[in-house]
Computed example of a mutant assay.
Amino acid sequence: MSLFDAVFLSYDEPMGNSLHARLQRTLGGTVKRLHGVHGMRRAYRLCAEVVDREQFFLADGDFAIDNGFDASAVEPLGEGVSMRVWQAVNPVNALSYGYGGLKLIRRSALREMGEAVDVLAALPGRIEFAPQTAGITRFNQSPFHAWKAGFRECAMLARGSDYGMADDDARKRVEAWMTSHEGEFAAYAAAGAREGVTFAREAAHETKEFDQLNDPAWLRGRFTTAHGDHAVSG
């Protein structure tokens, strides 16, 4: 049994129910679910209000945890650390890094979170990046979801990582996203990556434009304008 609470944060992911059940089986006990909250910053902040413990696991609605992940072996966050992020395997380009990964996070840090496009980058305190992989980020559940993942991530990488990632590392990841060719809907992830880089260049002098990356309605509208309504669900 884990020492930590757990929250599954979902919005409109087609596989949300099954991935929530998988997370619950693997972690043991009850995994609370927060679903359909509009606004990413608001959704993350609300996670702090549904848990009873200061430190808790947080999984996005497209995260498929490795069945062998041992929650009982996880050490609590150290002094001054607000979040630990495990790596996740990207199903369309084989990258493994913190994108979409499982998190161990402090409730108090979420309550004190500042403002950033990459919302959790605005947590107070230090962020740890675990070298281990904890699962797969299954964002490629539909053409739209695959496109959205590539668009948001590459727009933020092209803008400049809020986590202080080296430019060369960011460039290599963008290139991998733009050439995605594995798994379902990889072509949409690649298209999203290319369009996200273009968006970042266009919005370089209008920083408020980047807030649109956290607006689900704006993202869906941008996708349908470029790819048509028929491609939203596949």
Rank of each mutant, 00 (worst) to 15 (best):
D5S: 04
A6W: 11
F8Y: 15
L9A: 10
D12A: 14
S18E: 15
S18Y: 00
H20E: 14
A21T: 07
R22M: 11
R22E: 14
R25S: 11
R25D: 12
L27C: 13
L27Y: 05
T30S: 11
V31S: 08
H35F: 03
G36Q: 08
V37N: 02
G39R: 04
G39S: 03
G39Q: 11
R41Q: 09
Y44M: 12
C47R: 06
A48M: 03
A48L: 10
R53H: 07
F56M: 02
L58P: 02
L58H: 03
F63T: 05
F63W: 08
I65A: 03
D66F: 01
G68K: 06
F69L: 03
F69D: 07
D70G: 02
E75N: 09
P76Y: 06
G78S: 02
E79A: 10
E79C: 04
G80F: 03
V81W: 04
S82G: 10
M83V: 03
V85A: 12
Q87Y: 06
S96V: 13
Y99W: 10
G100Q: 06
G101E: 03
K103D: 03
K103S: 08
R107M: 05
R107N: 08
S108V: 05
R111V: 11
E112R: 15
G114H: 01
V119H: 12
L120E: 12
A121C: 08
A122M: 05
L123C: 02
P124H: 13
G125V: 06
A130L: 01
Q132N: 13
Q132G: 09
T133K: 07
G135P: 13
S142T: 15
H145N: 15
A146I: 10
W147I: 09
G150Q: 06
G150N: 05
F151E: 05
F151L: 02
R152Y: 07
R152W: 03
E153W: 11
A155E: 00
R159S: 01
R159Y: 02
D167W: 10
D169G: 08
A170F: 13
K172G: 10
R173P: 00
V174I: 15
G183T: 01
A186R: 05
A191R: 07
G192Q: 05
G192D: 09
A193S: 04
A193R: 00
R194N: 08
V197F: 01
T198G: 02
A200E: 00
R201P: 02
A204M: 04
A204C: 06
K208H: 12
D211E: 14
L213H: 07
N214I: 08
N214G: 14
D215H: 13
W218S: 04
G221R: 14
G221K: 13
R222A: 15
T225D: 15
A226D: 14
G234C: 09
